[in-house]
Amino acid sequence: MAGGAKPRRGGRRAPTRGAGGAGGGAAGRPTRHDGASAGRGGQPTAGRGGQPTAGRSSQPTAGRSGQPTAGRGGTPTAGRGGKPAAGRGGAAAAEPRAGAAPPPGPFRLGAIEGATPGKWIDTWHERMPRTPLDLTPLTIADQREALVGRAVDAALVRLPIDPAGLHVIRLYDEVPVVVCAADSHLTAAAELTVADLAGEVVIAPRHAPLAVEIPDAATPRFAPPDTVADAIATVAAGVGVVIVPMSLARLHHRKDVEYRPLAEGPASTVALAWRDEGAGDPLVEAFIGIVRGRTANSSRG
Rank of each mutant, 00 (worst) to 15 (best):
G3E: 15
P7V: 15
R12A: 12
G20Y: 06
A26F: 12
A27W: 10
G28Y: 00
G28P: 07
R29G: 01
G35C: 03
G35W: 01
S37E: 01
S37Q: 02
G42R: 00
G49Q: 10
G49S: 13
G49M: 07
R56K: 02
S58H: 02
S58I: 01
G63C: 01
T69L: 15
A70K: 03
G73K: 04
P76Y: 03
T77R: 10
G79L: 00
G81I: 09
G81V: 09
G81N: 14
G82Y: 04
K83W: 10
G87Y: 00
G89H: 05
R97G: 01
A98C: 05
A101W: 00
P103G: 00
G105L: 05
P106Q: 01
G114S: 13
D122G: 13
W124A: 11
E126K: 15
I140P: 02
A141I: 11
A141L: 14
A141K: 14
R144Y: 12
R150I: 07
V157P: 03
L166N: 06
R170E: 15
R170I: 05
L171H: 02
E174M: 10
E174A: 12
P176M: 06
V178L: 04
A182Q: 10
D183F: 09
S184M: 05
V194I: 15
A195P: 03
D196L: 05
A198Q: 15
P205Y: 02
A208S: 15
I214N: 09
A217E: 13
R221W: 10
D226N: 14
D226A: 15
V228F: 10
D230P: 00
G238W: 12
G238I: 07
I243Q: 10
P245G: 09
L248R: 04
A249P: 06
A249N: 08
K255L: 13
V257Q: 09
R260V: 02
L262M: 00
A263F: 05
D281G: 07
V284W: 09
E285S: 11
I290W: 12
I290R: 13
N297T: 11
